[in-house]
Design a protein around this nucleic acid. Structure first.
Lengths: 341, 341
DNA sequence: CCTATTCTGTCAATCGATTGCCAGTTTGGC
DNA sequence: GCCAAACTGGCAATCGATTGACAGAATAGG
């Protein structure tokens, strides 16, 4: 129900917020002095500063970020563009980014490109006019597009590498190695990779890493396409998985893995007895189904923190300091098992 | 790994974005004419307008929202404050809000109060200086706080009712009635409500509605406290639920329900055979466990759309038009069953 | 052909803050 | 005591856009 109390609606009589001019008038100092009292501690006589600060407090003064942005060129705002806000993967990443941003007194603006490169580009462009820098997570854009955006304002890409653009990516090898090792120990020899979007850099990184490792271990491996990186996409791929005659499958992400898991159960293929499944990201809910999904987890929170910190230094024009690697980890739950003899 | 290509870093040589002054110089018209050409179609000679628009295009002109905000007082931005960004409930709501906002050419700023009223208030205040209006979802603030915020700038609350403040809430009755009806049919007579945060208005609405209905149907019902509205909180409440000797429980939200479901399974209490569980919100993942969780779903997407539209009209100072009710719906999956004789 | 409109484009003030430069006042060193 | 250095605070320009008022030009009506 849509409720609104017509009687008491406060609309109309909102009083304009206090400005430094109000404080100036109120204290008898000039606006520039007020500005200094508020932003350059120590620049003025201590008593003056005190008086002005008190007046500001009293008048409920809040700085107008827009007005400040004009002369300084700094908006105190960071933009975060993700491909799909509906994907639980981004939880921790967002949290991490938020955390660092608020530490630095910046606000985070959030946008969703709905898995569309065209939309992503236009959103990023619009956002760029109002932020100090941009975080692009799992971008579907071409390298050239990203480089162009990066030439306009500071930008950091996450889960992606682009020549000449600052980036933060996890090290996928440890997690993949652990998972593939667990599978090999349990007798698996024929493995499939259920792929994600072709435009996803992370998809090809995962596939490539898995492929190289499997080959070097003498395992056979195939890539199987999926229609979309969602539960529906995973379910849809079920038939192609069984047709491929493999005993284990890595899915590009947990959403796909979850869809496949469910489809398998529904069609009478036992997981993990007849088919082992490993996802990526260890999203919220991965541990919910029976069997609980085994997954390769990225340190998303740290990724978000790291990327944001990187963006902040980029904005300050400071040199980037390399950080330690951010390794992925294999969370082994119940969706893998030994091959039946 | 933290990657950055030192060689190609574009930093430093970013060229300043084009302004209306650049366009003015480039076309020989005055800045005010440029402004009019871009914002008041028809106000100028068609040829002039064309020439200016072309030049703008050519120079890659993007309006500076900060600069515009100063004289107009409109930032073209809406703020959305949720209590916990990590709660999947907000997905659809955010999507809905985003959808309407982008239709209206506004950007959505997103903030998270981490379930803390203090933080929520300070975040809201900070945000208010840079947005045209605020959306408060599931606010933990007191009525008075909300009214004060509302007196500064347009504000709409979602999932909450506050005297004198525009609000959008779903109608919880239909879903609760359907769920309780299903339970009654299956022989349940002793029901528990596993409560959410006391500061949550929606919590008391759900409890109250459930309570009244149960009483009027002659069912016995108890409220059981939980420590926090998360899976951990639900698990933690398990013992108190069994001690209460009920055959069915409604949980304040799906997170709690999921936690309880898991705890029950782990401690050997069969769901739904020995205990029926109903959640609220039907979040992502509710259908994942075995048994899949039955849940009462709010039309969150529409809620978000409605609230955003309402905020937009509030900003324009237009009168609010009442909309149709937004009924909840009972999604019956596998977590309820008949009482064992 | 003359006046009354309607068009077009420019001027200049304004939004709220920041900041380089300057001048008057203190303070300090010797 | 005298001069230099350090403090304090104000002036005025600036950031990029918007907009009311106005003037000259074009058009219309009779």
């Amino acid at each position: 129900m849509d409720q609104s109390d017509a009687t008491a609606s406060v609309r109309g009589e909102r009083k304009a917020p206090a400005t430094i001019y109000d404080i100036a008038r109120h204290t008898g100092f000039s606006p520039s002095t007020v500005s200094r009292a508020l932003n350059k501690p120590g620049r003025l006589n201590a008593t003056t500063e005190r008086r002005i600060r008190d007046a500001a407090e009293e008048l409920g003064y809040r700085i107008n970020p827009m007005a400040r942005a004009l002369p300084t060129g700094k908006t105190g705002t960071l933009g975060l563009v993700v491909s799909d806000i509906t994907n639980p993967v981004y939880f921790d990443l967002v949290r991490g980014a938020e955390h660092i941003a608020s530490e630095a007194d910046s606000t985070l603006i959030f946008a969703d490109s709905q898995e569309s490169a065209r939309l992503e580009r236009s959103i990023a462009e619009r956002l760029q006019t109002s932020v100090d820098g941009l975080l692009l997570v799992g971008s579907r854009l071409g390298d050239q597009d990203i480089r162009e955006l990066s030439s306009v304002k500071p930008l950091v890409v996450v889960n992606r590498l682009v020549d000449g653009v600052p980036a933060v990516v996890p090290d996928v090898a440890p997690g993949i190695e652990a998972a593939l090792g667990a599978l090999r120990e349990r007798g698996h020899r024929r493995i499939a990779y259920l792929a994600g979007p072709e435009a996803s850099w992370m998809n090809t990184l995962r596939w490539q890493t898995l492929f190289d490792l499997a080959v070097s271990w003498g395992l056979s491996i195939v890539e199987i396409k999926s229609t979309e990186p969602t539960r529906a996409g995973g379910a849809e791929a079920f038939q192609r998985i069984v047709a491929a005659d493999v005993t284990a499958v890595f899915a590009y992400n947990d959403l796909i893995a979850l869809g496949l898991l469910r489809a398998s159960r529904d069609r009478g293929v036992a997981v993990p007895e007849s088919l082992s499944i490993v996802g990526f990201d260890d999203i919220f809910g991965a541990d919910l189904p029976t069997p609980a999904l085994s997954s390769i987890r990225s340190p998303l929170g740290e990724l978000g923190e790291r990327a944001t910190r990187r963006l902040l230094t980029e904005i300050d024009g400071a040199p980037a300091e390399a950080g330690a690697a951010l390794p992925t980890r294999f969370i082994d739950r119940e969706s893998i098992a030994a091959v039946r003899s």
